[in-house]
Write a protein that binds this DNA or RNA. Structure first.
Lengths: 120, 120
DNA sequence: TAAACAGTCAATGAATTCATGAAATGATTG
DNA sequence: CAATCATTTCATGAATTCATTGACTGTTTA
């Protein structure tokens, strides 16, 4: 359990990211894109509590297994989650705490300005 | 310049976001989705330097005006940027510093794990 | 090794997003 | 008020994403 949620000491990388780096930009956008779906985000919020296997996630979310598996696959392809097989089960866990921070930050920011939409 | 980049004191909202709130989740996902496009993200990275008008942004990004305008419109609809008209020009600016933090964080996280892609 | 369980993969169609170019709107200037 | 500059809107098609279903693979257990 502890083995799956390591590294990325949060302030290893506070500075950086000044002058524009197109590669980092694309990478960041890809991460955001992956986070930018309510279903996927919901999975990640669940995983904040600790590693879970696919069926457990699907149960908790009351969604079909295949769909959940595919969302996890996408999250994995962006290295947002990692996997570990244990017997029949495959456990998914958040790759590192940066992701948690990112999510919490957006979540909190989201609950702030909750007014519907700006003018037109 | 200072008038356009106010509020959101960064740690007004450090805790929060514990138990699952579907509305906040959707909102957060929407924000992420908006950030999840390289072109839009690039615009935001530009705006980190301060407010700019549409043509200036399009020039800087060497992209067509209409496209930039539409991306800005989307960012505005998610309240990620705000506008101010000044004569013929419309200036766009980041709504608050939370967004900057979010971006910097992802950007930094992005440059870390820059390995292509995980297995299959 | 067959059955059962856990998860993934592949294919399909529906829905959404995106870029592009042309027309329309707003604001200033001659 | 005509011309021009700045920006937005609209319409189109191409590309991408998403959910769904059924088949397939890997692992344990009887």
């Amino acid at each position: 359990m502890t083995e799956l949620t390591p590294q990325c000491e949060t302030d290893d990388h506070a500075p950086a990211a000044r002058s524009f780096d197109p590669v980092a930009c694309d990478r960041a956008a890809a991460i955001f894109r992956a986070l930018g779906d309510p279903n996927r985000l919901h999975i990640l919020i669940l995983l904040r509590q600790g590693p879970m296997c696919v069926t457990a996630i699907a149960d908790e979310l009351d969604d079909n297994l295949s769909a959940v598996s595919q969302r996890l696959k996408l999250l994995r392809s962006e290295r947002i989650v990692v996997t570990r097989r244990e017997g029949k089960h495959v456990f998914y866990a958040l790759t590192d705490d940066c992701i948690v921070e990112l999510i919490d930050h957006a979540l909190a920011h989201g609950s702030e300005s909750l007014t519907p939409k700006p003018p037109r």
